[in-house]
Design a protein around this nucleic acid. Sequence first.
DNA 1: GTCACAAATGACAAGGTTGTCTTTTTTTGA
DNA 2: TCAAAAAAAGACAACCTTGTCATTTGTGAC
Lengths: 343, 343
Amino acid sequence: MATIIDVAKQAGVSIKTVSRVMNNQANVRDSTRRRVRDAMASLNYSPSDAARQMRLGKSTAIGMLYSDPGSSYQSRLNQSMIQACSDAGRYLVVGLFNEDDDDWVGQLQAFLARTKVDSMVLVPPMCDSENLKACLNDASVKYVLLSPSSPTPGVSAVTMDDRKAAREMTEHLLDYGHERIAHIAGHPDHVASFLRRQGFEDAFTERGMPGPDSSQVASGNFDFRCALSAAEKLLTSPNPPTAIFAASDDMAAAVYMAAGKLGLSIPEDISITGFDDVPIAQTIWPALTTVAQPLDNMAKDAVRVLSNSLAPTTKDANSNFLVAPHKIITRESCGVPSANRRG
Amino acid sequence: MATIIDVAKQAGVSIKTVSRVMNNQANVRDSTRRRVRDAMASLNYSPSDAARQMRLGKSTAIGMLYSDPGSSYQSRLNQSMIQACSDAGRYLVVGLFNEDDDDWVGQLQAFLARTKVDSMVLVPPMCDSENLKACLNDASVKYVLLSPSSPTPGVSAVTMDDRKAAREMTEHLLDYGHERIAHIAGHPDHVASFLRRQGFEDAFTERGMPGPDSSQVASGNFDFRCALSAAEKLLTSPNPPTAIFAASDDMAAAVYMAAGKLGLSIPEDISITGFDDVPIAQTIWPALTTVAQPLDNMAKDAVRVLSNSLAPTTKDANSNFLVAPHKIITRESCGVPSANRRG
DNA sequence: GTCACAAATGACAAGGTTGTCTTTTTTTGA
DNA sequence: TCAAAAAAAGACAACCTTGTCATTTGTGAC
């Protein structure tokens, strides 16, 4: 393994100059800079994480705290983050976060002290805690927010356009000819629930159709059981919907169960769509049409921001939102509304 | 943060002696050892990972490579490992492993070089590769095998008793009065598939019953689609089973779908059990009776072994298998065989 | 051509740990 | 009791990087 000394020798400069080049510091002649860069490349040099960590008291790892580690969403995100870190030559240290423990700041501090990570990605619901953000500022740990409820001035955030995605998903159903479409919304505390519901309504407004009345929107709390009973109520109502758009795949799976219980077949009797594209979407049958969250891209952007390869735009508070493009995944859970149920 | 120098001062010894005590080296008087230990405790000292890493060229992190990161099993294992590491004051570095890339050793070496982990847990299928194990030996990286196919002399392994668990799961079905029980086996390359099938047959043998004929055992490859068609074939056969034991929860979910398609209700018409206890077991309805793999305990044992708190028993090659106790999780997917289907 | 000043570069220490080698202390055997 | 050997403890360097401060080189004005 080449060290900074080898590079210095090869370039004919002092180690300090090499260090300056590495860290993009000022006061280095362009010609010198080039010479050092060449030497680094030819020796295939990469700086020692340990030495840096010792000098600076920080590691170059990226930290991430989970709060709901069982969820498929977290699992997918985790995978995307590992991949993104790996691609960027960094690595990920994950920790468990206990939402029920009141001492959020204490938990974060313990994690920082133990891992010495120099940067973090903050996922929901931690990304909305002012205390946590203040704590990171104090510790001068760089951070990115992932899908936060609202922008924080001067802090970069990566996210997707929940509202637009929900609108597109609804339009997909509308395109099939569905008119009575119900929505099972997520947990009221999550901004995503609100945005997805808005997108759902946008689709009707845009086409000049009367919006769905409130009886067609049920709360599912992002919870299977809750969504199950909501779906049963919806499907057994006097004028049942011909399509149901659930705000998460897990809740969509619950709609499948409800439909199964009532002897309705998918997509002949009822069309169903979800949101997230977690593994269950492909496990259930027929496979679920859903919105794929661009977690790979979001993770890549997050790592880029933390590695300074992507400068946060600083024009205004909103502009350092990086919005990754989503995708509608069309599978087999949607069809035209059946005549016998529309009458 | 206290350093080794502070401890040395407080104990009235040289830093080297403190180092000796920390690393359990010889040539330290018991009285001195005690004095140093007290000083460490009173100063709440913990050694700097970075300094160690610099001196030794290794970090104290535990590494783990995923190959099938989407799977619920890996996700649960990951969670258990994070928790176990956290409890032991260590941390986990996870990486992606590409099974399809032929250069397994190269991938491992790259991971070791980048992360400098001093120990690893090897999960299936990597834990069965002699090349990988040789590579770790060469690099003198400590490692534990998690659920390997066969023991490796001198190497600790943590595992569960697949065969016994499968027997118990089958007995559970037998206890309900089922006589025609089918089994959907896993991928033939996995030893777990073989052991679970053996356990399935053990249950019959032990009760002096005729073993199930081969038409009652189908191969599901641990794959949803594959299990789906196997289940359909089984359930539409002339003398269909009254219960199906699938070798994984995902495959059990496929059985649910097959039953739904055929208008069979669970557990009235057909009893179903799974294996693994991954999230889907509780998501599907009715909730699945299954075997809970003791991943928390296995992870804890693995970390203990790697931290030397648990010496591998070295009496013989088989005895350094740590077998963690499993549990049968009884939910709502089993019932007595229905009369109308038995005649 | 000289001086003042700025820009570029370098020498050196520090950070916390462990290996090597040396010194001190204790034990053993006569 | 003393020498010799063994055990215990210590001094110091090395690991690789970056911050501080000193030195050299270059620039522009007189």
